[in-house]
């Protein structure tokens, strides 16, 4: 837990200083989440603000203070997904038979890329690919959970992930 129970209590009383303390404790990590899900920095900032407003407005729904880290993370992921709801168009499932035919990218070449470059590639993906990639690869949801969150089938989730990685490989081959 990044903040004390006392800070949470004061936030529940709508105390601005406590709210600022909580914001400071989570803003960097949550901005990281926002940047991954957003198409650019401006949108990430919008999501960050919207996310924190939801956090403070719904704090009374937090069942256990110890679970606040995961609870806040979930709010931000949901906020980011909702932000792009209208843009989320999932293409039909594709056959995954050829997935393994995609060559992997040289690990050392990949590791030479900076955070910023990796982020640019991720942000350049279509919203649906980017969302599934984030949920699956970084936030650790499985395809069944992703299907529930996004209202799609497990297979659609898998195909989105495959398409996301195929797109990324294409970009990486061009720049490496």
């Amino acid at each position: 837990m990044t903040v004390s129970a006392e800070v949470i209590e004061l936030c529940l009383k709508n105390e601005p200083r406590a709210q600022e303390a909580l914001y400071k404790a989570y803003s960097a990590s949550m901005f990281g989440v926002c940047l991954r899900y957003a198409g650019n920095r401006m949108e990430a900032q919008d999501i960050l603000q919207e996310g924190f407003i939801k956090v403070f407005q719904n704090l009374s729904h937090l069942h256990s203070k110890e679970a606040i880290d995961g609870w806040i993370h979930k709010i931000f992921v949901n906020t980011a997904i909702n932000y792009y709801t209208k843009q989320l168009k999932f293409q039909n499932e594709v056959s995954l038979k050829f997935e393994s035919a995609d060559a992997t990218i040289q690990e050392d070449a990949l590791s030479k890329l900076s955070h910023n470059e990796l982020l640019k590639i991720l942000q350049g993906l279509p919203t649906g690919y980017r969302t599934v990639f984030n949920l699956y690869v970084i936030d650790g949801y499985n395809h069944r959970e992703i299907g529930e969150i996004l209202g799609i089938s497990e297979n659609t989730s898998k195909s989105q992930l495959w398409r996301a990685k195929a797109s990324m490989r294409k970009i990486l081959r061009r720049i490496l």
């Binding site: 914001y23 901005f31 990281g32 991954r36 920095r41 924190f52």
Partner: peptide
């Protein structure tokens, strides 16, 4: 990943 958040967001 914890990038510095934008200054005016708070």
């Amino acid at each position: 990943f914890e990038p510095p958040p934008p200054g005016q967001a708070w």
